[in-house]
């Protein structure tokens, strides 16, 4: 039993949940009042948009690519959400669907021309940001009431964010980890040649994953404006780096299709909490992102130690 608990594989899988628990306990210790409905709501308020962005990034990482434009894409969605979607809902929906189509097309372009995804998505980050500025030149806009209503839902026992985050993790887990086609999608990240030899189209897997990323990025933007009530093209630029960090914190690997949707959600929550943690430590908020980076490094260091222990066996 103890041997299982100490086995590298178990430790590696438990690491994301473990780091979240440790952080949460530390916060409860420092400020017992957070152990309440409102306390948790305050702590995890912004976790949901980050979780969606992290899931989007994870979809891209599954097929061995990286999205450096997701942050500005979330900003564009936020801008569309706070303008067109409110004023002319049909145009808003069409624009959002168009964005997802562009994502799918990016996947096809990267696959067919064998391009480095970093550069393509970096270029797209300019495009998304520019489009967001065109849609919404100055911060503001009005968020459709229904989005606001969903995001401020009063749920029993625990804040809405927690239910929603769990639901997202579980749904994506079933979609990617348990479903039949999800298996092929991950296989395409693990050993593309073997998947192609088994008769699957690699173009289709890549387009699917990029379209999914576009979809979850859209959810990220919409849930974000539901909380902030107004939008700004630059609102989510930090999400690019946060989402990558969230995937890695959640136990995902950079290459090889090794991902964990539930881990990614946990990673996103850990990053959100890390920011709040400092406030309770009475450290200046300046150290917020530093703490996020520090946690990332510590967790990766643990993982390196575990992997080495495994290699030695």
């Amino acid at each position: 039993m103890i041997a299982t608990l100490l086995s590298p594989r178990f430790l590696r899988n438990a690491l994301p949940a473990l780091s979240l628990t440790v952080l949460l306990l530390a916060i409860f210790q420092l400020q017992p009042r957070t152990m309440s409905y409102f306390g948790l709501n305050l702590l995890l308020n912004l976790a949901l948009p980050i979780a969606f962005a992290t899931i989007a990034q994870m979809c891209i990482i599954t097929v061995n690519d990286l999205d450096l434009g997701i942050g500005s894409y979330v900003g564009l969605v936020a801008a569309i959400g706070a303008t067109w979607l409110n004023e002319t809902p049909l145009l808003g929906v069409a624009a959002l669907l168009g964005c997802i189509l562009i994502y799918a097309a990016l996947g096809a372009l990267i696959h067919l021309r064998n391009l480095p995804s970093i550069v393509v998505t970096l270029g797209m980050s300019f495009v998304w940001l520019g489009m967001a500025l065109l849609v919404l030149p100055t911060p503001g806009g009005t968020v459709p009431g229904w989005i606001r209503a969903i995001m401020t839902l009063k749920t029993p026992f625990l804040p809405f964010t927690i239910y929603a985050a769990v639901a997202v993790g579980v749904i994506v887990h079933f979609g990617l980890m348990r479903s039949a086609y999800g298996t092929v999608l991950r296989g395409a990240g693990g050993n593309p040649r073997s998947v192609a030899r088994a008769g699957w189209s690699l173009l289709r897997t890549k387009v699917t994953m990029f379209a999914l990323a576009g979809f979850f990025g859209m959810l990220s933007g919409l849930s974000l404006i539901g909380l902030t009530t107004s939008a700004d093209a630059n609102i989510a630029l930090r999400y690019t780096l946060l989402s990558i960090a969230g995937v890695i914190l959640g136990g995902g690997e950079f290459v090889g299709g090794r991902i964990s949707p539930i881990g990614a959600v946990i990673g996103a929550m850990t990053l959100t909490l890390a920011a709040s943690f400092l406030t309770f430590l009475r450290l200046p908020p300046d150290w917020q992102i530093g703490a996020q980076g520090g946690i990332l490094i510590v967790v990766l260091a643990f993982r390196a130690v575990i992997n080495r222990a495994e290699a030695r066996r």
Partner: peptide, 8 residues
């Protein structure tokens, strides 16, 4: 050469 997906 092995042609399994190592992540599955």
């Amino acid at each position: 050469e092995l042609s399994l997906c190592p992540n599955l």
